[in-house]
Amino acid sequence: MIDPLHYDTTGNGPVLLLVPGGAGHPMGLGPLTERLAQRFTVVTYDPLGLAHGRLGRPVPDQRPAHWSDGAHRVLETVLPPGERAHVFGSSSGGIAVLDLFARHPGRLAHVVAHEPPCVTLLPDGAHERADLIERLTAGQHASAEDGPPSPMAVFLAHVLRPFTAYTPAFSAPTGLTVAAGADSRGQVLHRTAQAVAQRTGSPFAEFPGGHLGTLEHPVAFADRLTQTLLAADAPGAAR
């Protein structure tokens, strides 16, 4: 049985698929999508349906391929015949769009992966991954027991570990941009994004804010993303 798709659409123009981070819950992305919708048909994918009435239901452990296959199905549903979509993903969503690029490139125009936590690419990557998991899960277990389930609880229990084990194993000199927040300089996920860009042979770009730049500076972030995608569309641009 194929799982149902959960996504929202707003705006007009070329299709831009967004894959949120965390557990894929598009919480707080309204200002970003509102700005992007001035130039694009923004399709926000909710891979676990947490914003569509499924929060609190059982969730199995996730894999990047689960999300990228779902994202591919969304594109096949919303894209007119012969057209291609821009794609943006941040954090765990950044890992999902890397896997989408690797496994389903046929309907993609340009992909931007923002701070994908592929920390195993770093020197002493196993230690970096263990440290990242420990820092993110510290103090969460008690609060998860005391209250109702949350997207963060789902992320920590079913997304964080399998996604941070993902390593891109492809070369992408065109069609992919790897990004990190300017405020993340010197931090592990900024270094990780640079490592992903180096591994894939892709351009590296800095975006406004830090790891949560989509929430911290939604207008400036949307404008930087729009600039990146329009540059990729320009005549003569590598794709």
Rank of each mutant, 00 (worst) to 15 (best):
G49K: 01
R73L: 05
P105M: 04
H66D: 15
T33A: 04
S90G: 03
R84A: 07
R84Y: 08
V59A: 10
G89H: 11
L36T: 05
A85G: 10
T41P: 07
V112N: 10
H86K: 03
T77K: 02
G56F: 12
E115L: 11
V112K: 08
H52W: 11
P80V: 14
L36I: 11
A51H: 04
L48D: 07
G94R: 10
P47G: 02
G70A: 02
H104D: 10
P26D: 13
E83N: 12
L98V: 08
V97Y: 09
R39P: 08
L36V: 11
P117D: 11
L29R: 02
V42F: 04
D69N: 12
P60C: 10
D46Y: 12
G24K: 11
V97N: 01
A51Q: 07
A96S: 14
W67D: 05
G49Q: 08
T44F: 09
E76K: 13
F40N: 05
F88H: 14
E34T: 15
L36C: 01
P31I: 00
E83H: 14
R63Q: 12
V87P: 00
H52V: 09
T41I: 06
H52F: 07
D61Y: 13
V78W: 00
T33W: 04
F88N: 11
R54K: 14
R35C: 12
A113N: 07
H86N: 01
L121P: 04
G28F: 12
M27R: 14
S90M: 09
V87W: 03
L29M: 13
L98P: 07
D61I: 14
G70Y: 06
R57L: 14
L29T: 06
A113G: 08
V43W: 05
L29W: 11
F101H: 13
T77G: 06
L55F: 02
P47S: 15
H86C: 04
H86I: 06
V43A: 06
L100F: 04
H52R: 15
A51E: 04
G56Q: 13
G24V: 08
V97C: 06
P105T: 00
G49I: 09
L100P: 04
G94A: 09
G24T: 15
A96T: 06
S91K: 11
T41A: 02
R39N: 12
T120F: 03
T44Q: 03
G93I: 09
E83G: 00
D69A: 15
G30H: 15
R35G: 00
Q38M: 01
V59C: 03
H72Y: 12
T120W: 00
V74G: 06
